[in-house]
């Protein structure tokens, strides 16, 4: 049971990551593999702020997220938007985003080295809380609480505000929003900002459990994609479920098979879903294929 709780906690962070990815994907319709790396850079910045300037965790996390948003916006306007305008297929953009991922990953390695950086909400070792016989550490509590809060805010924003409705509309039928005279480019940029912000928060949360390494950029975007695909691309609720499922499956895998098989479990889950139910749990949009 403890394993499942641990899985749910880390899964909620995966879910947040997947939600951000799903949100961006449903408006731009290409896979941006650098998504996870930009998020991890946000976590690195938070780490640096905490260690060098003794900022508290939440403030550092927000500051790091802002830096990530900046990088995300730059990459969108300098690389992705021009490529879309030149008529690049989603596959070409995917490969280019991989190039960006490699560059960012290695720059991070140069700045922060390849060692794993540990992150915690406080300097002292705090005792865990007891919840119905299960232990939950303060770090875990932070992850779960912030992830839940962000998802709630996002859900309210999308469902109850006018702008949120426009964002949902673009993800639903972009052609039609153009016909209605909406400023689609502006809204897409806003989505990029929101998605990147969420991803950086998520990466900083996950860092509480697994630390920060340059290679996490790749692993996190893969987890985000897995969560988003399992839940059904374009569905926020789906990404939530997908993330939780992934977190629990991974932790069960670690317990029964050992930590080394973690990635294998994740990818096998992905493969199973792509083969058996490619539209995900809450089918909204089919995975847009290039062929």
């Amino acid at each position: 049971m403890q394993i499942i709780l641990n899985g749910l906690i880390v899964g909620s962070a995966y879910a947040l990551m997947g939600i951000g990815f799903s949100l961006i994907y449903s408006t731009v319709r290409y896979f941006n593999l650098a998504y996870g790396m930009v998020a991890v850079i946000g976590a690195y910045v938070a780490y640096t702020l905490m260690n060098s300037w003794s900022l508290n965790y939440v403030i550092a996390m927000l500051a790091g997220a802002l830096v990530a948003v900046l990088i995300g916006m730059l990459s969108s306007s300098i690389l992705f938007k021009p490529m879309v305008r030149r008529g690049g297929s989603s596959l070409v953009i995917l490969v280019a985003s991989f190039g960006l991922l490699i560059i960012l990953q290695n720059i991070s390695a140069l700045i922060w080295q390849n060692t794993t950086r540990a992150l915690s909400i406080s300097d002292r070792i705090l005792p865990g809380y007891n919840l119905f016989g299960l232990i939950i550490t303060p770090n875990q509590l932070m992850i779960g609480a912030v992830a839940l809060l962000m998802m709630l805010i996002l859900e309210l924003f999308l469902k109850k505000t006018r702008y949120g409705m426009a964002i949902r509309a673009i993800g639903d039928n972009q052609e039609l929003t153009k016909v209605l005279g909406l400023k689609t480019e502006q809204i897409i940029l806003a989505v990029y900002v929101i998605g990147t912000f969420i991803s950086a928060i998520s990466a900083t949360l996950i860092a509480l459990e697994i630390g920060i390494r340059p290679t996490h950029g790749v692993t996190l975007v893969i987890k985000a994609i897995i969560a988003a695909i399992i839940g059904g691309l374009g569905s926020i609720r789906g990404a939530l479920l997908g993330g939780l499922l992934l977190g629990v499956a991974e932790n069960l895998g670690i317990y029964f098979l050992g930590g080394q098989w973690q990635d294998t479990v994740a990818f096998t889950l992905l493969a199973v879903f792509l083969l058996v139910r490619p539209e995900g749990l809450f089918a909204k949009k089919r995975l847009v294929s290039v062929n």
Binding site: L91, L94, I229, L274, V288
Partner: peptide, 9 residues
């Protein structure tokens, strides 16, 4: 699988 999903798997 096709396209993007092929690449991912």
């Amino acid at each position: 699988l096709k396209g993007d999903s092929f690449v991912l798997v």
